[in-house]
Simulated scan of single mutants.
Amino acid sequence: MNMQNHINYVEFAAADLAQTERFFNHAFAWQFEHYGPDYIAFSNAGLEGGFYRSDLAASTANGSVLVVLYSSELELIKEKVLQAGGVISKEIFSFPGGRRFHFIEPSGNELAIWSDS
């Protein structure tokens, strides 16, 4: 497949890289590689990316892009998010084509998870 002009990588700010790494590893089994004290790259996430040390955070309230993950078991993944230390910012709601919820990971970034079931 030709990857020209496709989204290839995504980067997030993260105030606490260690806590963010633990969260995504526990909740979603993402794998991480460290590149010095201020950057970690992730894989096994559908799209590769990284976290850089910063006190900023992505939030739709501030006009940020919303990264949306997929899960066929929405309630189960919601529990994993909570157990890993995430905070639910929008409870499960329906929209045309499925259901989703939003959460805040330990460094303050907002993401969502949707399901078509």
Rank of each mutant, 00 (worst) to 15 (best):
S59V: 09
V65Q: 07
E75Y: 04
P106M: 00
K78G: 03
G97C: 05
G49I: 01
G97N: 09
E11K: 05
E79N: 09
A13W: 02
F51N: 06
D16H: 08
E48T: 04
N62I: 12
Q83W: 04
E79F: 02
V81C: 05
F103N: 12
S54T: 03
Y70M: 07
I40N: 04
S107T: 05
L111W: 05
F24R: 01
T20W: 00
N2C: 09
H34C: 03
S64P: 08
L82Y: 09
D116N: 15
Y52W: 07
S59E: 13
E110L: 02
E11T: 12
M1R: 14
P96H: 01
S117H: 08
G46D: 14
F28P: 09
A14T: 02
A29S: 11
I7W: 10
Q19V: 14
R100N: 12
F28V: 02
D55I: 03
Y35S: 06
I40Y: 00
L66M: 14
S117K: 15
S117M: 13
K80A: 07
H6L: 15
V67F: 02
D16S: 09
G49W: 03
H102Y: 11
Q83S: 09
V87T: 15
M1N: 14
H34F: 04
D16M: 05
Y39H: 12
V65F: 09
S89F: 05
E105P: 00
F95A: 05
L82P: 06
L76V: 15
A84G: 11
S89K: 06
S117W: 11
Y35Q: 13
I7T: 15
M3H: 11
A61K: 15
E11V: 11
A13I: 07
A41D: 08
E48L: 04
G86N: 07
K80Y: 03
K90Y: 11
D116S: 13
T20G: 03
Q19T: 14
L17E: 02
L17C: 08
H6R: 15
F23A: 00
E21A: 01
S94Y: 09
I104C: 06
V68S: 09
P106Q: 04
E79Q: 11
F32V: 06
A41H: 07
L17I: 04
N62L: 14
I104N: 10
W30L: 08
M1G: 15
Q4T: 11
D55E: 13
G86Q: 09
L17Y: 05
F12Q: 01
Q31L: 08
E48W: 03
K80E: 10
A14E: 02
F28A: 02
I88R: 07
H6E: 15
L66D: 10
L76T: 15
L76G: 08
A57C: 15
G108T: 04
I113C: 15
F103W: 06
V10E: 07
G46W: 14
A61H: 10
H26L: 07
L111K: 08
F42D: 01
I40E: 01
E75M: 06
L17A: 01
S107L: 01
N2D: 12
H34P: 04
G36P: 05
R22G: 03
S64Q: 10
E110P: 04
S64L: 08
L69S: 07
A112F: 11
V87P: 07
H26E: 13
R53E: 14
I104T: 14
N2L: 11
V10R: 00
E75Q: 10
R22C: 00
A61L: 13
F42E: 03
A27M: 02
G97E: 04
S72K: 08
M3V: 14
N25A: 10
Q83L: 06
